[in-house]
Simulated scan of single mutants.
Amino acid sequence: MANVNHVAIVGPLPPPAGGMANQTKQLASFLEAEGLKVTVVQVNPPYQPKWAGKIPMFRAFVRLIQYQRALKKQLADVDVVHIMANSGWSWHLFAAPAIKVAKRLNKAVVLNYRGGYAADFFAKSWSSVRKTMDLVDDIVVPSSFLQDVFQQYGKQSRVIPNVLNQARFNPESRQASMKPRVIVTRNLEEIYDVETSIRVFAGILQAFPGAELKVAGTGPELSALEQLSKSLGISEHVEFLGRLSPDEIAALYKSADLMLNTSVVDNSPNSLIESLACGTPVVSTNVGGIPKLVTDQHDALLANPRDAESLIKLSLSLLEDNSERERLTKNGLLTVEKFSWSNVWQALASCYQAAYVGAKND
């Protein structure tokens, strides 16, 4: 790409292997494969010294100082700074400082904003957020849902989907299960409402007594969810797998008959796309950007949040109707094509070039 040879990505890296961390790592790898030099400025490095991580207030101060130093040093020679941003404290602690340092160094800045809480965050903090956001050269969001949020605040953005690793997430080598296998691949946090997924599975189990539920993820709700499984009398059918590697997650998708997503807040969850790419049908809530990510009755089945009864009915309709499951699976594989690297790279290269030229002309 003319003029742009060196890109810095500012964002988290695994561990833990969350959505943004995985996207940061994956994006760096794909950009390097295109011949670009890539520098990753990690916002969540291990604490140095290690003992600092045991002191809550002190560790935040240490990390902030080290982060500021890393930004000044590692952004000095780059052409474009690609900042992975989110709402809340993540914005104030990581995204905003990176924008300010990059612009003081006269660098082109591409803000890659994500997160289902954007509307709430902007409503509370827009006056301070806007001042920093005005400094960036381009804004990228992974969904039209977030694009609409930015538009409400007078900010133009371009939609560039999250990239899907098709070498990992594909329908090849699917494993036929002897009994219905339902999976959940979200962290065990309130916003993902895994409680409803467990209640939905209890309903599925009444129709399919041999069914099993595999839950991949970690979080503060683990104990409560384990207790719920026991109280519903289904604990012997439910397995909490903890945090899995990307390859293990792909294998889990390929072993499943149904993926359940019962989140109450969401934007453009990678888990839905990864599931569809592996040929696993999806039953999900219709919150946030999900109805713009998939289409109800076309490539997924959607219901209102916390509506366990409707989610049970949709799940059973898929498990009981092979032709319906095959139709949704076929459409889902077509949907995920837009997340291929070739499509994402074409849009991203144009974005980088425009930001670079714009910054040079300022």
Rank of each mutant, 00 (worst) to 15 (best):
P269I: 06
V215G: 12
E226W: 00
I273C: 09
L222S: 05
S245R: 13
V264D: 11
E274N: 12
P246T: 13
R243E: 15
L241E: 06
Y253P: 10
T262K: 10
L258W: 00
P246I: 13
L222Q: 12
L232F: 02
G219A: 11
S271E: 07
L228H: 14
C278F: 02
E226Y: 09
S235Y: 09
L225G: 05
A251S: 15
L252H: 13
N261K: 04
G219P: 11
Y253D: 06
C278M: 02
S231F: 03
A216K: 07
N270K: 01
G233A: 13
L252A: 13
E239K: 14
Q227T: 13
K230N: 09
G242Q: 04
S268K: 09
S229H: 07
P269G: 07
E274H: 08
S255R: 08
K254Q: 13
D257H: 00
S268V: 04
A224P: 01
S231A: 07
I273A: 08
L222P: 05
L252F: 14
K214Y: 06
L241S: 10
A251F: 08
L260W: 03
S245E: 15
N261V: 00
I234R: 05
N267R: 01
N270V: 02
S268I: 06
G219N: 10
G217M: 10
A251V: 03
G217W: 02
H237L: 03
G217Y: 08
L276P: 03
A250H: 13
E221H: 09
L276C: 02
E226M: 10
G242A: 01
E236P: 08
E221R: 15
L225A: 13
A251I: 02
S263F: 04
N267Q: 03
V265D: 04
G242M: 03
N267P: 08
E226V: 12
L258F: 01
S235E: 14
E274T: 10
L260E: 01
A251W: 09
M259H: 09
K254P: 08
S275V: 12
L260K: 03
H237V: 04
A216Y: 04
D266R: 02
L258V: 00
A224T: 11
P269Q: 07
V238I: 10
A216H: 04
G233L: 02
Q227G: 07
I273P: 02
C278V: 04
C278D: 00
D266C: 10
S229K: 06
D257C: 00
M259Y: 03
L241N: 11
S223N: 13
L241G: 15
N267C: 11
L276F: 05
S275A: 15
L258T: 02
I249Y: 05
I249D: 01
I249M: 09
M259V: 03
E239D: 12
Y253T: 08
S235T: 11
S223V: 10
T218M: 06
T262S: 14
Q227W: 03
V238P: 01
F240A: 06
I273L: 12
F240G: 11
A251R: 14
K254A: 11
A256H: 04
S223T: 10
I249W: 04
G217F: 14
L244Y: 07
G242D: 09
T262E: 12
E248V: 05
